[in-house]
Design a binder for these strands. Structure first.
Length: 716
DNA sequence: GCGTGACATTTTTTT
DNA sequence: AATGTCACGC
């Protein structure tokens, strides 16, 4: 074994990498070398002859993480890594189902529905069941179905307690039946179906249990109930489960991630075999102190404190802006200054809680000609024109796919409207056939469509993948449609890009069939964006920043109801409120720990939200940080603007400033303090003189109307 | 069957 | 503000 493999590992990392063949839980803090430990262990196991690449299963959450893992392993190991099962939960589940489709009760060419496909399938189903979509919102139905499947439950396992939930369960059941009929599986179905397959098929289960001597899981804190069960089922008595995670970075509870899995795993598998990686190699001292102090205020933790051998570094800069625009221009100036000092734009990140906040920031960056790149948003395979092209392809390989049929039967327009389709689906339902089968016996325009698909099928029979797609785009009329559309050139380019993607896939994939390409498109909606090489400022939500690091990080919009987000704490029971706030705090923790050297925190007194000016109080998270590592920034000197934190008139740009009478000295947007209710901000007023009343939004006491004559508000 | 305007609806996101 | 959804009229 090459000796340098284990060089430069600290004692804890070394212990984790060289653990014997036992299950273990690795609590790996932010920046503690988690991925390195994971990949080094795999290489160590293989090089030491303890296991063949064939006997390893490694699971991640994102394709990016899986790819990263593979790249690192290939760099360390000169062997063929093909036989290794490294991938996302969904990717691996798909692999199982493709191999054992018959046993799993699926057609060989089953197709994968992404969330949007799933939603339209639900809408279609509800229409056919005559269900009022006002009373049962399709999105809620989708959440209901997904949440149950993620908990490992089928419709028959769900207990209904009233008329409403009874109906929901009925829809759930009908939805699964429809998917089965059409030969499609949604994301969660991949997991649930492969779980059930292994559960019921003992020989198969034993085969895989025997095969996988080591199962390694990344980002374990993000697993949901079903994923954990899936892992437990695959792990036999001779399997060592190696789970790496950080409960403090669990930020996906809102979509089913179950933090309790970590504690449960410790009890069920690790049996005290727990290693904590607490040395942080990323951030300077003050930044870590801030992160540690903040997260210590969460009650539900496994407990862990990061430390660094680096110095304290610079203080954390806090900027109180008058408005969102002021905040944006502050960021622009700082970014430019740092860039002049030699920091690459790509080594700086601009983070926000929700996507809607990027607009103002983008505008300011654009006006100042600072190159930037926004992550998130519409992914390549989710674009409309791509979805259409893929639907044609799906129909070719799986004619039972009614969702694909509906999507393309009249796009581009062929004069097949709602009425015609209604008749067709009634006809199909009557004879228990798919829309495609019904179309084959139809006449008129529908028959023309059926012939078109048949012709394409004939013409592409012998063609390689990329040419199939090229032919489909032309023959379907998609290309002509976008050529005729004056705004269609970008969409045409994307369709071209799809052909390129297929060509690339043909070169790289083990088997470049149409089915595998379609699965690839559904499972890896990936970062197909151009301009990666350019030096540009990185804009993204805090969620999207997890796993990344930057020299300088700006966390913007640190205001109550924005971050922590009001939706996260408002609804539900007090227990939900508590856990919601804790998740927001973990989110803030993730944001802070992205920074290596420099961290900026900013909040704005006023902000445009939903087309209205809103006044917000500074986030409670700012108060929860140790004040000695913070350095409040004032507006650059020489400015005509007032300089203190809260005591300032809103910037001119936010519109009309109401004055509560010219004699009171109070105005909308002003920070005030009340003896009993604490600090707050004035959001409205009425009356004048002795009758004047103001509406104050208090940090902790809610929103109240107060008479100025009695309230004795002090200006903060 | 198709285009247009009124209307609601705004967290976070991967697969 | 901006975007998507839906009903209505041609």
């Amino acid at each position: 074994m090459s000796a340098h493999l284990l060089e430069n590992l600290n004692p804890e990392q070394l212990a984790a990498v060289t653990l014997p063949h036992e299950s273990a839980l690795i609590l790996a803090g932010a920046g503690s070398g988690k991925t390195r430990v994971l990949t080094t262990r795999m290489v160590w196991l293989i090089q030491g002859g303890q296991v063949s690449p064939h006997g390893i299963l490694a699971v991640t959450f994102t394709n990016k993480a899986a790819k990263e893992m593979m790249t690192r392993i290939s760099a360390m190991l000169p062997i063929n890594t093909r036989g290794m099962w490294v991938g996302t939960f969904h990717g691996l589940a798909n692999r199982l189902l493709r191999t054992h489709w018959r046993e799993a009760g699926l057609p060989q060419s089953f197709q994968i529905l992404d969330s949007a496909d799933q939603l339209s399938a639900i809408k279609r189903l509800m229409k056919s069941m005559n269900i009022d979509s006002e009373k049962y919102e399709p999105k809620k139905v989708q959440r209901f179905i997904s949440a149950n499947k993620e908990a490992g439950l089928r419709a028959r396992d769900v207990e209904a307690f009233d008329a409403y939930s009874t109906r929901l369960v009925e829809i759930f059941e009908a939805y699964d039946a429809q998917c089965q009929r059409e030969g499609v599986a949604d994301f969660t179905e991949l997991l649930l179906r492969s779980y059930e397959l292994l559960l019921r098929n003992e020989p198969l289960r034993e085969h895989y249990r025997d095969r996988f001597k080591h199962i390694l899981v990344d980002e374990f804190q993000d697993t949901n109930t079903l994923q954990y069960r899936w892992l437990k089922l695959l792990a036999g008595p001779g399997t060592a489960l190696f789970a790496v995670g950080d409960d403090d970075q669990s930020i996906y509870a809102f979509r089913g991630a179950n933090t309790a899995n970590m504690a449960e795993f410790e009890r069920e598998f690790a049996h005290g075999n727990v290693i904590k990686l607490e040395q942080n190699y990323r951030s300077h001292g003050h930044i870590l102190t801030a992160a540690n102090t903040l997260i210590a205020q969460n009650a539900h933790r496994l407990g862990k404190n990061l430390w660094t051998a680096e110095g304290e570094g610079e203080p954390i800069r806090v900027y109180a802006a008058y408005s969102d625009q002021d905040e944006a221009s502050f960021v622009v100036e700082e970014v430019r200054a740092l860039n002049r000092e030699g920091i690459n734009l790509s080594d700086m990140a601009l983070l926000y809680r929700s996507n809607a906040q990027s607009r103002v920031l983008e505008h300011a960056l654009f006006s100042a000609s600072v190159p930037y790149r926004v992550y998130g948003g519409l992914r390549f395979f989710e674009r409309l024109e791509i979805k259409h092209a893929l639907a044609y392809l799906r129909l070719l390989t799986n004619p039972e796919d009614d969702g694909a049929f509906i999507r393309v039967v009249n796009f581009p327009a062929r004069g097949i409207g709602a009425r015609t389709l209604e008749l067709l689906s009634a006809h199909a339902a009557q004879s228990g056939a798919s829309l495609w089968q019904a179309a084959c016996t139809a006449s008129g325009k529908v028959a023309g469509f059926a012939k078109l698909i048949e012709d394409i099928k004939q013409a592409t029979r012998e063609l390689p993948l990329a040419e199939v797609i090229d032919h489909v785009i032309e023959a379907s009329g998609l290309a002509d449609f976008y050529r005729a559309d004056k705004d269609g050139s970008e969409r045409l380019e994307n369709l071209n890009e799809l052909v390129n993607a297929a060509a690339l896939f043909g070169q790289e994939a083990e088997e470049a069939t149409l089915d595998s390409f379609l699965a690839h498109a559904a499972l890896e909606a990936g970062e197909h964006q151009a301009g990666v090489g350019l030096d540009a400022l990185q804009l993204m939500t805090v969620h999207a920043a997890k796993g990344l690091e930057f020299h300088a990080v700006f966390i913007t919009g640190l205001e109550e109801s924005l971050f922590p987000h009001e939706q996260s704490t408002l609804k539900g029971t007090s227990a939900n409120e508590e856990s919601g706030l804790e998740e927001e705090r973990r989110l803030m923790y993730v944001a802070i720990t992205r920074a290596r050297r420099r961290l900026y925190l900013s909040h704005a007194q006023s902000r445009m939200l939903h087309g209205q000016v809103r006044y917000g109080l500074p986030s409670r998270f700012l108060d929860e940080l140790p004040q000695q590592v913070l350095s409040p920034l004032n507006r650059r000197s020489g400015s005509a603007q007032p300089q203190s934190f809260g005591y300032a008139a809103p910037a001119v740009s936010i519109g009309v400033v109401k004055n509560a009478g010219n004699d009171t000295g109070y105005r909308v947007g002003q920070s005030v303090a009340h003896a009993k209710f604490g600090s707050g901000i004035i959001i409205d007023f009425e009356g004048r003189g002795a009758d004047a009343r103001v509406q104050v939004k208090f940090r902790d006491a809610g929103t109240k109307w107060l008479a100025l004559a009695y309230a004795n508000l002090s200006i903060v």
